[in-house]
């Protein structure tokens, strides 16, 4: 096995890891707000991919150029979901966590079913995008261009999220999460802050959806493949931690690729879960968790 192949596989794995990380970041952010996992996260990824597909079919707009548009659409969807569904679940007395879990789970089933009803169950894909099918070669290493661009955009998303946490809003978000009754005294409305938090979380999964639509197939079920990895990444990186999601996503991408190359492709998820179990045993709150 040559060094070039190992390097190519490792870089490819890290780039895929960046995509996992963006999916996980949205999940982690929303978790940070409510201490509850959003089970509709995979379905929202899928919705973003279909949104990209529909816009592409209707206007011919390249997926890459749709990034801001779909991000805004998903931001709106996130705020809407919070206002219509989640804000109500927060008002339940007793066992609010369960209510939220079932609400997001139900939302997921609804979204998958609605998309299958509207678009059918066929696998679809966006052909003829600017990036689609292109590769870049650096020395002996060949990489898929959509994956390279996705990795770059993913890094920008993390930069934006890092900057956000330093803004007034970022601090308001953190404060509301810590004690919403206290912040209400200084005039911060919980629903407004959480609504925007949900919007940002779903906007980042929306960006991941657009990136994936460049090179991945699109089907009502496509979210499941990524949601499981995102849950693991969030638990691995630490619940609520954005930096943790980034590091965990990268680690998963790398371990997955190297396990497949060195040991056996059918065992690649085992590598991920072994690390996950090890982290759980040694550091149950995750790498960057503050719980």
């Amino acid at each position: 096995m040559s060094a070039a192949i190992i390097a190519q596989v490792a870089i490819g794995g890290l780039l895929m890891g960046l995509v996992y990380a963006v999916v996980a970041a949205g999940l982690s952010l929303i978790f940070g707000l409510m201490d509850v996992v959003n089970f509709a996260h995979g379905a929202l990824l899928m919705v973003a991919m279909y949104a990209t597909l529909v816009i592409h079919r209707m206007t011919g707009l390249d997926p890459l150029l749709q990034l801001p548009l779909v991000a805004v659409l998903l931001f709106g969807a996130g705020v809407g979901i919070y206002r219509v569904l989640i804000a109500r679940t927060l008002k339940t007395r007793g066992n609010a966590a369960m209510v939220q879990i079932f609400t997001t789970f139900g939302l997921s089933i609804f979204l998958v079913g609605a998309v299958q009803f509207l678009f059918g169950s066929d696998f679809q894909s966006i052909n003829g995008s600017v990036l689609g099918g292109r590769t870049v070669t650096i020395g002996a290493i060949t990489l898929a261009l959509p994956l390279v661009v996705s990795g770059g955009v993913a890094l920008l998303v993390f930069l934006a999220l890092a900057l956000l946490s330093r803004t007034e809003f970022g601090r308001a978000l953190e404060a509301t999460r810590e004690d919403f009754e206290a912040v209400a005294l200084i005039g911060i409305d919980r629903d407004q802050v959480f609504g925007i938090g949900w919007g940002i979380g779903t906007a980042s999964v929306g960006i991941a959806g657009v990136l994936l639509a460049n090179f991945y197939y699109i089907s009502p079920d496509v979210g499941t493949n990524f949601a499981l990895i995102a849950y693991v990444a969030v638990a691995l990186g630490g619940f609520g931690s954005i930096a943790g999601a980034l590091i965990a996503g990268l680690a998963i991408g790398l371990v997955e690729a190297l396990t497949a190359l060195v040991i056996d492709p059918s065992l690649k998820q085992i590598g991920i879960f072994l690390i996950y179990l090890a982290v759980l045993m040694l550091r149950p709150r995750g790498l960057f968790g503050r719980l």
Binding site: Q8, V9, G13, F226, A257, D264, P265, K268
Partner: peptide, 14 residues
């Protein structure tokens, strides 16, 4: 051998 519905088959292709 690979697990069905895996997110990537890049290494297998390699």
């Amino acid at each position: 051998s690979y697990q069905a519905n895996i997110p990537s088959l890049a290494v297998e292709a390699e």
